[in-house]
Amino acid sequence: MSQHAGTKPGTAKSRTARRRTRRMPPLVILLPAVLGALLFAVPLVGLLGRAPWRQLPTLITSDLVVESIRLSMITSLAAAAISVILGVPLAWVLSRVNFPAKALVRALVTLPMVLPPVVGGAALLFALGRRGIVGQPIYEGTGFLLPFSTWGVIVANTFVAMPFLVITVEGALNNADRRPEHAAATLGASRLAVFTRITIPAISPSLIAGLVLAWARALGEFGATVTFAGNLQGRTQTLPLAVFVALETDRDTAVAISLVLVAISLSVLILLRDRWWSR
């Protein structure tokens, strides 16, 4: 507390300070702020208001919903895991190695964040499809076909999700204090040992944040998935795809699946509350 010794609570100074905090913010700022908050609140209220609460247990235990929950979990977690396995080394190289065309590589990595996901899905199809430049040799050699398979969903999810992890981790690596790494090197640690024993623990908060962002992005992924992997129940139909289909045929199921997604997202936010909100 910055209160001076001898100043009692309720003196002139603290009263003005309290009154100042109670003043109305300017309307020009307050009005758009409230509208902005409503934009997030109203759809949620709409969803909750439209919810078929009584049939909800039956709806979310139907085969269609259970299968899409299972599929969404598998594919989004797999995409998040692949994002870490490939993305952390990629971020390290972007942050710590000087090479020509680094700016180009960084632009390529961040492209999926701004690219319409449908375009990303189409690009994946042309590259990894049965007649794609990479897909064709794989198909002819092994008979394995990526599109319209669960693996295809994972690839599409990773494509859109990994950039979030890479830029979060690269930012942390760029801001990290290098001196403990130097200290570790003088103690005999190889560059790999410095990376695993010093760098990773130091950036772990950002790594977790990047992992959650990537996972959340993968969980909600629609455009690239539907283009590249199609919409096959039990194989490629994830929760967002199931919502989209159900909206056409069975509104109650669509609302039920949406509530499942809201519940998952909220529980993640609550789990991360200590890490993010209390700062």
Partner: peptide, 20 residues
């Protein structure tokens, strides 16, 4: 010879202990 192979014990300014 890179730092990890020099066998020089360094006490750094601010010590740079590993916080974790």
């Amino acid at each position: 010879i890179p730092p990890e192979a020099r066998r020089i014990g360094v006490v750094f300014q601010d010590y740079l202990l590993f916080d974790h």
